[in-house]
Design a protein around this nucleic acid. Structure first.
Lengths: 195, 195
DNA sequence: GCCTTGGGTTTACACTGTAAATTTACACTG
DNA sequence: CAGTGTAAATTTACAGTGTAAACCCAAGGC
């Protein structure tokens, strides 16, 4: 043990822990994974993680942020990689959204699940969410360019986001049958393309 | 204590327990309420509830069903009590939906939160959900009467439900600012009225 | 060489859901 | 009316949780 923990050592351990935890959360859901289990998976004693994270919630927060970043990157890629006009690109991002949520159910639940209400102070999380939302924002920008009022366009974004999120969570909860979310998205696309 | 527990006694205790539990859940969230706390609030020893419910999850399930019934009744009332055409009545039901969810955040979370995946066998819950959805279905019926294809109309229902649910959960999670859900609903209403 | 200091571990505590053992109190029998 | 069987309720117990506090031990500085 080096006498003092480097900033890098610290970050490295945090990253390793998040990697491991993320996998375990994805596999069996965040609240079926205990601190002791994470520690064991790291080959470290139960209390060691507490030297790097204040408590369990801080680990969840870190994994949540990583989830949002992976999510955002995916949406950006889908948008960028799809040929055609902005509407087509946005539609592709929408499908990427649904696919991510369904393929990473537990991660998605962790990301959007009920967590300590951030009193606006959780800046990193806020930024990660904003980045994920930005791809959607591009769609709103398009609406504005084509003459829609700003407020209207942003509200439209909100509606689309709500619909995506709602469709996905209902399907994840088993309330609506499999395939419903994609179906809903298809219908939403038809509305959006009509303006 | 009567020698044998009457069917009524049994139902009565269950009801009383659900009443109490529902209140505690509403106040501080279902998973901040322990079995021991519920028992204490009932003035009964910690293990007594287990004579009436197999386990904690069964209590949650019961409260969930009651939530859906209260919710369904509210939507039905809003629909019935609103004058005007079907669209106006449906819109009122939509606002009732959002208001219920925001006013009963923890109950709503419990109702739609991640719970033991019902392998289709949880009939009472299924019925309660169906009843809540029925008011929405009336709207779909209207669409069909005015010439829309059945599948299309049901998909439309699904889209509306998704949007309501999504808007509400995003606001409850603090991801979107207060008032967003109602705003989204307003916009949705404008789309729906245009067909 | 000691001495400090901080990373890591061990121990300990209050809490959880619930299985199992035990007590209690009634309805019925003799 | 005493005694008994039995179901309701309670008590006890256990394995697990998050985490506070005490402890141990090696890598510096003196």
């Amino acid at each position: 043990m080096s006498r003092q923990l480097t900033e890098d050592d610290l970050a490295a351990f945090k990253a390793r822990l998040c990697d491991v935890a993320e996998g375990m959360f994805a596999e069996r859901g965040a609240d079926n994974v205990s601190m002791r289990q994470i520690a064991a998976a790291l080959g470290v004693s139960p209390m060691t993680p507490y030297r790097y994270f204040a408590n369990r919630e801080e680990i969840l927060a870190a994994v949540r942020i990583r989830g949002f970043e992976r999510f955002a990157a995916l949406l950006e890629d889908a948008y960028a990689a799809t040929p055609g006009d902005a509407a087509q690109k946005s539609a592709a991002a929408g499908y990427a959204y649904v696919d991510f949520a369904l393929a990473n159910a537990n991660t998605y639940r962790l990301m959007f699940g009920e967590h300590q209400q951030d009193d606006g102070s959780d800046a990193p999380l806020g930024r990660a969410v904003a980045r994920a939302r930005a791809t959607l924002s591009v769609y709103g920008d398009g609406l504005i360019r084509s003459g829609m009022a700003e407020a209207e366009a942003r509200a439209m974004e909100g509606l689309i986001w709500s619909t995506l999120h709602g469709a996905v969570t209902l399907e994840l909860a088993g309330t609506t049958p499999p395939g419903s979310a994609r179906e809903t998205l298809r219908l939403l696309g038809r509305f959006a393309s009509r303006g």
